[in-house]
Structure formats: structure tokens, C-alpha cells
Design a binder for these strands. Structure first.
Length: 773
DNA sequence: TACCAGAGGAG
DNA sequence: AAATCCTCTGGTA
């Protein structure tokens, strides 16, 4: 029996001018670093003239070996030269030289980093067995002294480091105390340097495998690094004794720890959840349906300085609650990252920081190697710019029949785009192939796809989809809850990857970019939904609404629920008989009542009276809670209770409350993302103006940050009146704005769709007396 | 009133 | 650094 082990990380070092791959394993009880010394760096050249190129290559002393090889490149098999170099660092220079040679047409795969290259070629699977090994996970969080505005690492010290791990150890390290302080988790050291050193020691003593943080990439680790430099101490967290490394990753930083992967939960939470804000407390309450203990940021230095033991203890407890929340979030979200890491076969540090495009591309690169396909190069910057201008037509959206409908049946195509790609073999290598000449699978876009040879991407997609079907079968029969959860995560990871494939074709930076494939997929999608609509209509259904892959149907005559469902099932059976095997129109719900406002904006109630809302203000972070809640109450009154009078009373009550000035700021905050640098805005909306005011008070904003603002009493325009919520006192809000620009538009939209005329509503809106209806 | 920039949702 | 379609607000002229 072989020992269980999991591959946590890979890198390479240079020893005696030779590259040595290091594999960082966690075994049953110990940690192992395995070194590989016989893996040579290489890349490919596609020759104009191979003999000539071989001769030319002899000139370069960094070339150690050249092999001829046949590989698949899109539609054809080609001869390539595999060029081995002495060291990985030789590749960038040699690539330039070689691609400049007359005898060379093109250089390929010279941009695959060496450690990644090794992982692909070796076939090793990172994170394999990680669930069986009981990995040791630790979370940490720092508290920083913030005198005024943003804390700065060149002056403001770290005052606490909190630590919690999956073995049950929890600590808050600090260097101040008060008489009578008695919190078993508090560890008092002499100074700031000591708490940093103690933190490192804890991680090492506990033999931690994965370090989790919340925003550690862009705050905690850069800050610790800043302080460590000032205090002249090391941050040797790597299992090989190396320092943490801060690397640039696009607009952000990444904090890399050798052999002990650091996973930042913040970007993961942003991908996984759709919530109004992504502060630690927001994500915590989203996952655990529980409120986290909070103290305000400006109270940190106040509590630290105050001399009150109670306040100091509050601070310690707050710090502990942060780290415990981070650990809980990590334990909940890491399994999906493990699974993605296994499927993509890249280290968890990388995978956890990848977007959809990078994940798909990494998967394709690995699979291409297995199939002897030579990998396309990354497009040059100017090419990606050009691609951005190549727009194409996407999905079709049916204009809804506005107003209330009863007995609505919902159908949608199961995984429409993946199933189209598979059943029509949509791939850059199969498009408009020579062998099918206008036959094959002919898309409504005019392109056709090969019927003889399966494409690379459809083949991978089919593997993913079949694997997912198999895993979902296992989920059904699995009784052990641990294993069931594991399988559930597996199928989720497969779904994420399968659903990203279409978007990847249209992604301007993709190696396997193909606008023609992307537009063929959407063209087929439109055709299938159109055909479905036509068929439904000829069967006596009314199409109330539809979007991309879905249709909402009612029956044209008065029928009872069971009769309608019977008709509906007969309808989908008929449709499915005519569809390709991989495709299926699925029944996905019956709704006794629904209201349709516009495209992408509607609400339905199911048979358990549960309200489903799409696109309306209720679902939007940039509307105040008071407006969202009022809209929800109005919808419930109309859909569930069929009582417009009650709806009107709700609105009246809400308007009165706003007028009285007693609405809390929590209900008035408007969340909006600052999507760019503040100076880059052409037109400053209220959120930008609010942010710019805050900058004058010492605040800083990261691009992508979500802020909450209030429209206050002070100022002329809405923008003038806007202020970040943290600078606004309770009660300081503009009732007129919240009535006329928030609550009334949200509810009038619903009432308007009920058939009240615009004039009626305007008049009533002004009088704020909705009682008569 | 018409137009634009900007945001965020649906699928 | 996945795609397009779509609605709506607030600023500006």
C-alpha cells in the first residue's frame, strides 16, 4: 500500500546552473520536499525549413538538444522542433532569437512557466487525497493602529495578530495588557516584533499546511511585510524557511508562501457569492446565517488607547471573532478550490486566484499536452484590442406580455451552450473543415462543423459533462454525509468549468479564441428557443416571456392546474424527441401567479407561496433597503394575497416613516462599486462624488471596492447630497429623495404593470394617497 | 427632452 | 482580465 500524500505546491530553484523542480508534499504525518533534477526546459519552433532551422539552432550555446516531432495544430498535423535549453531563464531570450530566424515560422509554448510545465508533463495531480489527509488549516488576521485615515505601515504599528487553526488552537497575540485581564486566548508579548515572530512560530509549530486570510493578498501580508522591514525581522513562513513573496497579479498583489499555500478568501467569496458587499461580516452572515460580532474601525485605536480593560477586551474579542470567521469561511469554501485544483492540475495558490478565462485555459493547456496538440500562443496586446471590436450577436430575449399571469409553466434547456457545443462539435479545429465542405453541422450563423472528427474542446466538454452526470448519480445514492458533500463539490466544480467554455471562445485574451465559434453557439441557441416558442404556440400555449434558454408559458384556455401540467409534459416530450441527444428541454417549475414588468424584470410565486424575483430593485445592491423591502412587501400583497389595497397601505406607511425622519441609516444605504480610479470618471455620479469627498478626509479607495452612501439633507444635486455612510449621523437623510427616487419608483413600476395609468399613478404619487385603489 | 456614462443584473 | 442583452439613474446641454 502506498502512503497517502497530497501535492500542495511546486516551484523550481537553480542549483549549479541547473533547474531543480521542488514538489511540496504533505504526507500522512509529515511534510516532504521532493526534488526533480532531470526535467529540462523546452519550447517548440514551427519551421519554415526544418533542416535549415536545425542548422541555425547550432549557433546558440543555450540550446542543448533539438528533436523533430509531429503535433496537431488546429486542423492539420505539422512538424515541429522541440528545443531544449540549459535553464528556464534561457527560454525568453532564445525565443526572441529563434522567432527572428528566417527558417522559423513561429515559436510556441515558450510562455509556459517552468513549474507549470513540469506539472503538466508529469501528470501529477495537485491536492489529490487532500480530503483524506486532514490538512491543517490556519487563519490569521491583523489589527492595526489607525490614528487618522488609512493606516500606513511606515508609522502605524500592528497591535494584534489573531490566529485560529483547524486543530482548535486559537490565539490573539498582542503586547499590551490591563490589570485583571483574563481571556485564555490572549497571549501578551513584549512588543510588536515579538507578536510577528510568535505568529510565524505558531504556524511552524502547528505544522500548518494552508494559511487562509481575508484580503491577505492586498492588506495583511503587505502590511506585515512593511512592518517587518521597519522592525528588521523576517517573515519566514515558507516550509523551506523562505520569506513570503509579494507578487504582482494584474491590478492586485498575491502573497505567496512556499510549500504552505496562502489562500485569500476575499476573491473567492466574490466569485462564489452574489451579495451587496463582501466585507468579512457580509460573507460570514451569507454562509452561516449568523451575525458576526463587530466594532467600528475608528474604535480600534480608541479602544487600544483608552485605558479601559473592558474596551481592550472588546478589541481582543473582536480580533478573535475576525479570525474565527475567516477560518470558518475557509473550511467552507476550500473544498471547491481543492477540486478545481485537481481538475485543472495546477497548485491551489494559482487556482484560487484565477478567473474563469484562466481556469479554462489552464485546463485546455493540460489536456492539449495529453492529446499531442501544440498550444496556440497568447494573442498580442494589439490583437486583443482588435478582438474587442469584433462584436457578435448573443442571446434572444422575448418581450414579455406585461402584467399579471396565472398558472405559469417554466421550461429551460439544460446547460444550453455546453450541450450545443457538444452536439454540434463546435471547435476552432472543426469549423468550416475541408472534409465536410458546407455539410457537417450547419449553424444558423452560416458556419459548419465537422461530422467526421471530434473537436478538442467539445471532447473535453463532453468528458466534463459525463463526469458530472456520473457524480450526480453517486450523490443520489450516497448516504455518508461527508462523502455526499464531497461529491456535491465535485459536480459543482465540473459545472463551473463546463459553463465557462462558451465565454472563453469570446474572450479576447484567449489562446483558443474563436468569435466564429462563439457566434455559432449563440445562433444555435436563438434557433432552439425560437423553435420552442413556435412549437409552444402551435400547441395552444401563450409565451409570456423567455430569455436565452427559458420560456414561461401559460395555456390559452382556462384549465385547472393538473390539466395544464399534463399538456406541458406532453409538450416537452414532443420537443425532446426532436432534439439532439445531448440537449434537453426541462420542466423547471410551476407558478400559480407572476408579474412581468419588462425584459429581465419579473416576479413569481410558487405553490408554497415562495416569491422569486428577477432583476427588480429588490435584487439590486444600488437601491436602498427601504425601497427594496417596500417593493417586496408590495409584491407579496399583490401576488400572494391579491390585495392591492394592502399594497397601497404598505406604501403609505413607508412614506410616512421616511417623512418622520426615523428611518435608520442601515435602511438607507446605497451600495455601489467604484469600478475605476476616481480620476478616470468622465461623469461623476453620486457614488463617485461621495468617494471623492471621503478622499479629502483621508480615505483611500481601491478600484473595485464597493461603498455605501447616503443621500443627506445638505446640498443641491443628488451628488452634492451624497456622503459615505460612515460620515453621516442617524437622521441626516433627504426624505424627498428617498420617497420620490427610491420607494415610489420601485413600487409604482409594479402597480403600473397592473394596469394603472401613468397619470393616475403620477397624481397619486404626488398626493401620496394610494388608498382609493 | 434627448443623450450619454455608469452600474448591475439575467441567463 | 469569460461572453451579450437589457433596464434604469443621474448628469449635462
Amino acid at each position: 500500500m502506498t502512503e497517502l500524500k497530497t501535492l500542495l505546491d511546486v516551484d523550481y530553484i537553480t542549483r549549479d546552473e541547473k533547474a531543480v523542480i521542488r514538489l511540496f508534499y504533505r504526507g500522512d504525518n509529515d511534510r516532504k520536499i521532493v526534488e526533480v533534477t532531470d526535467f529540462q526546459p523546452y519550447f517548440y519552433a514551427i519551421p519554415e525549413d526544418s533542416e535549415e532551422l536545425i542548422k541555425d539552432l547550432k549557433r546558440f550555446d543555450t540550446v542543448v538538444k533539438v528533436e523533430k516531432k509531429n503535433m496537431l495544430d488546429l486542423k492539420s498535423e505539422i512538424e515541429v522542433l522541440k528545443i531544449y535549453t540549459k535553464q528556464p531563464k534561457d527560454v525568453p531570450m532564445l525565443r526572441e532569437e529563434v522567432s527572428g530566424l528566417k527558417s522559423c515560422k513561429e515559436v510556441r509554448e515558450a510562455d509556459i512557466p517552468f513549474a507549470k510545465r513540469y506539472l503538466i508533463d508529469s501528470g501529477l495531480v495537485p491536492m489529490e487525497n487532500s480530503e483524506s489527509l486532514n490538512l491543517r488549516i490556519a487563519a490569521f488576521d491583523i489589527e492595526v493602529y489607525n490614528s487618522a485615515g488609512e493606516p500606513k505601515s511606515d508609522k502605524d504599528p500592528v497591535i494584534m495578530i489573531s490566529y485560529a487553526d483547524s486543530l482548535g488552537l486559537k490565539k490573539v497575540l498582542t503586547y499590551k495588557t490591563h490589570a485583571g485581564l483574563n481571556l485564555e486566548f490572549a497571549e501578551i508579548l513584549n512588543n510588536e516584533a515579538e507578536i510577528i515572530k510568535r505568529f510565524i512560530q505558531l504556524v511552524r509549530d502547528q505544522k500548518i499546511d494552508i494559511i487562509a486570510s481575508y484580503n491577505g493578498d492586498n492588506f495583511d501580508f503587505p502590511y506585515l511585510r512593511g512592518r517587518s522591514e521597519k522592525l528588521k525581522i523576517d517573515l519566514k513562513l515558507g516550509v523551506d524557511g523562505s520569506e513570503i513573496k509579494l507578487e504582482r497579479r494584474g491590478m492586485n498583489l498575491g502573497a505567496d508562501i512556499k510549500g504552505r499555500p496562502h489562500v485569500d478568501m476575499f476573491p473567492i467569496a466574490r466569485q462564489v457569492f452574489h451579495i451587496s458587499r463582501y466585507r468579512l461580516e457580509d460573507v460570514y452572515s451569507e454562509i452561516f446565517d449568523d451575525e458576526k460580532f463587530l466594532i467600528k474601525s475608528y474604535e480600534i485605536s480608541k479602544f487600544w488607547d483608552s485605558g479601559s480593560r473592558e474596551e481592550f477586551e472588546m478589541l481582543l474579542k473582536y480580533s478573535l471573532s475576525d479570525v474565527q470567521a475567516t477560518l470558518k469561511i475557509a473550511l467552507a469554501l476550500l473544498p471547491l478550490q481543492y477540486e478545481l485544483s485537481r481538475i485543472i492540475r495546477q497548485p491551489i495558490y494559482e487556482v484560487s486566484r484565477m478567473g474563469s478565462g484562466q481556469r479554462v485555459e489552464s485546463l485546455l493547456i493540460e489536456r492539449a499536452f495529453r492529446k499531442n496538440i501544440i498550444i496556440p500562443n497568447k494573442p498580442l496586446e494589439e490583437i486583443t484590442e482588435e478582438r474587442l471590436d469584433e462584436t457578435y450577436v448573443g442571446a434572444y430575449v422575448v418581450e414579455p406580455i406585461k402584467g399579471i399571469h396565472d398558472n405559469i409553466v417554466l421550461f429551460d434547456f439544460r446547460s444550453l451552450y455546453p450541450s450545443i457545443i457538444i452536439s454540434h462539435n463546435i471547435d476552432p479545429s472543426t469549423i468550416d473543415c475541408d472534409c465536410c465542405k458546407g455539410n457537417g453541422f450547419v449553424a444558423p450563423s452560416g458556419h459548419y462543423f465537422c461530422k467526421n472528427k471530434k473537436g478538442f474542446i467539445p471532447e473535453i466538454l463532453e468528458e466534463l459533462v459525463n463526469k458530472r452526470i456520473a457524480v450526480k448519480e453517486k450523490v443520489k445514492s450516497e448516504k455518508n454525509p461527508e462523502k455526499k458533500k464531497f461529491l456535491e463539490v465535485q459536480q459543482q466544480a465540473l459545472k463551473i468549468l463546463a459553463n465557462s467554455m462558451y465565454g472563453y471562445y469570446g474572450f479576447s485574451r484567449a489562446r483558443w479564441y474563436s468569435k466564429d465559434c462563439a457566434e455559432s453557439i449563440t445562433a444555435w441557441g436563438r434557433e432552439y428557443i425560437h423553435k420552442t416558442i413556435k412549437a409552444a404556440e402551435s400547441e395552444g400555449f401563450k409565451v409570456v416571456y423567455g430569455d436565452t434558454d427559458s420560456v414561461y408559458l401559460t395555456y390559452s384556455e382556462e384549465l385547472n392546474r393538473d390539466k395544464i401540467l399534463e399538456k406541458a409534459m406532453a409538450f416537452s416530450d414532443k420537443i425532446n424527441k426532436e432534439l439532439p441527444e445531448a440537449m434537453e428541454l426541462e420542466f423547471s417549475g410551476f407558478y400559480p401567479r407572476g408579474i412581468f414588468i419588462t425584459k429581465k424584470r419579473y416576479a413569481l410565486t410558487d405553490e408554497k407561496d415562495k416569491l422569486t424575483v428577477k432583476g427588480l430593485e429588490i435584487k439590486r445592491r444600488d437601491w436602498a433597503e427601504i425601497a427594496r423591502k417596500t417593493q417586496e412587501d408590495v409584491l407579496n400583497a399583490i401576488l400572494k394575497e391579491k390585495d392591492p389595497k394592502k399594497a397601497a397601505d404598505i406604501v403609505k406607511e413607508r412614506v410616512q416613516r421616511i417623512k418622520s425622519g426615523t428611518v435608520s441609516l442601515r435602511e438607507l444605504g446605497i451600495n455601489t462599486q467604484i469600478t475605476r480610479n476616481l480620476k478616470d470618471y468622465v461623469q461623476d455620479g453620486p457614488h463617485v462624488v461621495a468617494a471623492k469627498k471621503a478622499v479629502k478626509l483621508g480615505r483611500e479607495f481601491k478600484q473595485g471596492e464597493i461603498i455605501t452612501y447616503i443621500v443627506t439633507k445638505k446640498g443641491d444635486s443628488i451628488s452634492d447630497k451624497s456622503q459615505l455612510i460612515e460620515y453621516v449621523k442617524e437622521g441626516d437623510y433627504d426624505p424627498d429623495y428617498y420617497i420620490n427616487n427610491q420607494v415610489l419608483p420601485a413600487v409604482l413600476r409594479i402597480l403600473e404593470a397592473l394596469g394603472y395609468s401613468e397619470d393616475e399613478l403620477k397624481g397619486l404619487g404626488k398626493q401620496l394617497t394610494l388608498g382609493e385603489w
